[in-house]
Simulated scan of single mutants.
Amino acid sequence: MSRGRARPPDQAGAFAEAPVDAAREVPHYHGHRERLRARFAQGDTLPDYEFLELVLFRSIPRRDVKPIAKALIQRFGSFAEVITAPAELLMETDGIGPSVVADLKILEAAGRRLARGAVAERPLLASWSAVIDYCRAAMAFAPREEFRILFLDKRNRLIADEVQGRGTVDHTPVYPREVVRRALELSATALILVHNHPSGDPTPSQADIRMTRDIVGAAQPLGIVVHDHIIVGREGHASLKGLKLI
């Protein structure tokens, strides 16, 4: 049979294609995927966009994901900011749909659960670095301010972790009486206050300082100790106790 003639039909009745170079059948990015996986397996420190590629490999199996990963990092700033970004903003990037967003949000939730596991069932004051890591994982990259309270028992073990309010990009209303009332409901004897600064700068404002002192003043007569007020942001964290502001 000459090369210019079609091959006989196969069993399904369709004409089989003429043989082609196998190398041309493999998308160019397949080799890149294997090399990147190998680097990860060897313990290489990957930049954020390559680490994001590893996640997107499974979510988007038949497309070169490097441009997508780079576009996401360019828009949101870091790996952490990508996975914590609002779903509607993520889907404005070409190639990102609901299923990819779902995978990213599962990863976000997994990170928070891992961080929470490091502080659960142990005295928090003895695991302060884990507390900071947990607070950053939970809030540092949120697009709006959130005010969170860690309620502790007399052994400084975590009773509950609750978001008491969500606000705008630079303000969350906090009511000291409500904070104390909730502590009494949970039989908490100590609190750690936490909130985020979406601007990225964790430096406490005068309003932050006043609000903290108001809560301390409301809690102290009832035997409830405020151990600290932690402010987290993309650029780090600040402790009002460490700054001797409470």
Rank of each mutant, 00 (worst) to 15 (best):
A219I: 07
G111E: 07
R58V: 03
G167T: 06
I192P: 02
A120P: 08
D21Y: 01
R5P: 06
L193W: 02
E235M: 14
A71S: 11
K241E: 03
A207S: 12
E146G: 12
H229P: 06
T172R: 12
I106F: 02
D170R: 10
L54Y: 00
E92N: 06
V163F: 00
A160M: 10
A85W: 00
C135L: 12
R24G: 12
R112K: 14
F15L: 15
L72K: 10
F151P: 05
R136P: 06
M211G: 12
R210H: 11
L90H: 03
G97K: 10
G217E: 13
V232P: 10
A218E: 11
L186V: 03
A12M: 10
I73Y: 04
I192K: 03
V226S: 08
P61K: 02
A130F: 04
P221V: 04
S129N: 14
S2Q: 11
I83Q: 05
D153R: 04
K66G: 04
V101M: 05
A23R: 15
R63S: 15
L124A: 01
E178S: 10
E145L: 01
D214C: 08
T45L: 13
V101N: 09
F147T: 07
M211I: 12
A218R: 14
S78E: 03
R39Q: 13
M139S: 07
D161F: 00
A71D: 11
P176R: 05
R24Q: 15
G236H: 04
I83G: 03
E146R: 14
S129G: 10
P176T: 06
Y175D: 15
E17W: 02
F57I: 05
E25A: 13
L89E: 12
A138W: 03
R157N: 08
E108T: 05
Y134W: 06
V119H: 07
I60N: 14
P61Q: 05
G117H: 02
G97A: 09
G97L: 03
E185Q: 10
P198Y: 00
Q11Y: 02
A23Y: 01
S2D: 11
R39K: 13
H197Q: 01
A190M: 07
S78M: 05
S59T: 07
M139V: 02
K66Y: 06
L89Q: 15
P86A: 00
R148I: 08
T168E: 09
R144G: 04
P204L: 05
E17F: 06
K70H: 05
A80T: 09
T84A: 06
R113M: 11
T93V: 13
G117R: 06
T203S: 12
A115P: 02
R181P: 06
V131M: 09
P202M: 03
E88Q: 14
T172E: 13
L107F: 00
I149Q: 01
R62A: 12
H237W: 12
I68L: 04
R37P: 09
A140L: 05
P123Y: 01
E50Y: 00
F15T: 15
R3V: 15
R7G: 04
Y175R: 15
V100Q: 07
L104Q: 08
P27C: 09
I60D: 12
D201G: 02
E25K: 13
I215K: 05
W128N: 13
P27W: 00
Y134C: 02
K105S: 08
F51L: 15
P198L: 02
M91T: 15
Q74N: 12
A160C: 05
A38E: 14
P173L: 02
F51W: 05
F141P: 02
E121C: 07
L52F: 00
